[in-house]
Computed example of a mutant assay.
Amino acid sequence: MPKPVTLTEVHPHPTTTLRHRAQLVRGGGPAVPLDLELHYTSLDPFAVRIVLRTDGAAVHWSLSREALLLGLRRLEGIGDVAVWPLREADGHGWLRIRLGPPGSGAVFQTEQDVVAGWLDVTQQLVPLGGESDYLDWDGFLTPLLGQD
Rank of each mutant, 00 (worst) to 15 (best):
I50M: 13
D120L: 14
R19S: 11
R21N: 13
G27K: 11
R74E: 15
V107K: 05
L63F: 07
S42W: 04
R53P: 01
W118P: 12
H20Y: 09
S64N: 10
P4D: 08
G91V: 03
P101R: 12
L34C: 02
P33W: 14
R26L: 15
L95V: 11
W84T: 04
A116L: 03
A82Y: 00
V121D: 12
L70N: 15
T54V: 10
F46I: 01
H92Q: 13
H20E: 05
G27T: 10
V121G: 04
T15D: 03
A67R: 03
D44M: 05
E76D: 12
I50S: 00
T110S: 15
Q124H: 11
L75I: 09
H11P: 00
D44N: 10
F108T: 00
H60I: 08
D113W: 06
I50F: 04
P45W: 06
R21E: 15
G28S: 05
R65S: 06
W94N: 11
A31N: 13
P33S: 09
T6K: 11
L119T: 04
V114A: 12
G56M: 09
E66F: 03
T8D: 04
R21I: 05
V83E: 10
H92Y: 15
R65H: 07
G29N: 11
R26T: 14
P101Q: 12
L119Q: 01
D44S: 09
T6P: 09
H11A: 14
P127G: 02
G105H: 05
P12Y: 05
P2E: 12
L125M: 04
A89E: 15
H20D: 13
G56P: 04
V126I: 10
V114L: 02
V51P: 00
S64A: 15
T6H: 08
D44L: 08
S42T: 10
T8P: 00
I50Q: 02
P14T: 06
G117N: 12
S42L: 03
V5E: 09
D90M: 00
D55W: 03
G77H: 08
G71A: 08
L72G: 04
S104Q: 14
I78K: 15
T122M: 10
D90C: 00
Q123R: 15
G91L: 01
V59L: 15
V121C: 04
T15S: 11
H11Q: 14
D90P: 02
L24Q: 11
L52E: 05
P101Y: 03
R65T: 09
